Computed example of a mutant assay.
Amino acid sequence: MTAVTEPEISPRDLHPDVKPLWTAIILAGQRPEGDPMAVYCNVKYKALIPINGQTMLERVTRALLASPDVGNIVIMAQSPEDLQSGLAPDLAEHEGISFVESGDGIATSVHNVIGTAIAPWPVLVTTADNALLTAEILDSFFRSHNRQDVAVAVVERKTMLAAYPDARRTWLKFRGGAYSGANLFALHNEAAKPAVAFWSSVEKDRKKGWKIFARFGPWLLFRALSRTISFKGAMSDAGRRMTLKAEPIILPIAEAAIDVDKPDDLELVTGILERREG
């Protein structure tokens, strides 16, 4: 008589209301002509800049692995094999981490993989220069996510200046506050795809919020420029025009909005990590 092996049942099978794990995409590419910070640090790829003993890519990857809400991790770059060889062996060979070659545009590359077997829903997108990312920041983000089709993490200026009064960031100013991006983007389901396609068309203007809102007509642009609309209201309005629900997630952690774009950032991040890690 042949023994029948019962299929293994996970807690998520017993509790279908449990939220699925997120696929995390790390954007680790750079311009074909190279990146100024990579040149400054004398490394081939910006993602492999070392800070206090670990590369930025390694730090972001380990933070994601430490989150109980993250399942698989996708590292996306023009030369993924080079980044893989530059990682610690336990990460380079980790069964939950895959490496995908990106195309010409970041948004187009993301659009091509989200919702596929490579990056099943829901999807979290972050960047390799998000070197201060921690499980605490991720937990704050995921706990605040309420099944919005698209959600963008930001930090309010008063939160940043209370912790780092000399920090220089790019601020989006709206009624009720000014905000800086935290390099965390939630794409919850198929409805998010139009937003990614839209992002592809405005990628070159990502640092100029007014140009992005101008795409949604003069009224929303006027309200954004005159600060007669809140950030949440502006995102909600833009989302409705794409038939999706979009909202910002305001994080209470200043470090969430500090990435490494210039030498001053690298100095600040290095100091924070040295203090944090002794």
Rank of each mutant, 00 (worst) to 15 (best):
V4E: 11
T5A: 10
I9T: 14
S10R: 11
D13M: 12
L14V: 13
L14A: 14
K19C: 01
G29K: 01
E33L: 09
D35I: 03
V39N: 10
Y45F: 14
Q54E: 11
L57Y: 04
R62L: 12
R62N: 10
L64F: 01
L65Q: 12
P68R: 13
D69E: 14
N72T: 13
N72P: 05
I73S: 06
M76S: 11
D82F: 00
L83C: 10
G86Q: 07
A88Y: 10
A92F: 03
V100S: 03
E101V: 09
D104K: 14
D104H: 14
S109G: 06
V110E: 04
V110A: 08
H111G: 05
V113C: 07
V125H: 00
N130F: 04
L132G: 03
L133M: 11
T134P: 02
L138M: 04
Q148A: 05
V152Q: 04
A153R: 00
V154C: 14
V155C: 07
R157P: 05
T159K: 01
L161S: 11
A162S: 15
D166T: 15
R175C: 02
R175A: 13
G177E: 08
Y179I: 03
S180L: 10
A186C: 15
H188W: 12
K193D: 08
V196T: 03
A197W: 11
F198A: 02
W199S: 13
S200E: 15
D205Q: 15
K208H: 14
A214D: 12
R215A: 14
R215D: 09
F216K: 05
F216Q: 01
L225W: 03
S230K: 07
K232R: 14
K232E: 11
G233W: 02
G233F: 09
G233P: 04
S236I: 07
A238I: 05
R240H: 11
R241E: 08
M242G: 01
L244P: 01
A246W: 01
E247V: 03
E255T: 09
A257I: 05
D259R: 03
D259K: 05
D261E: 11
E267A: 15
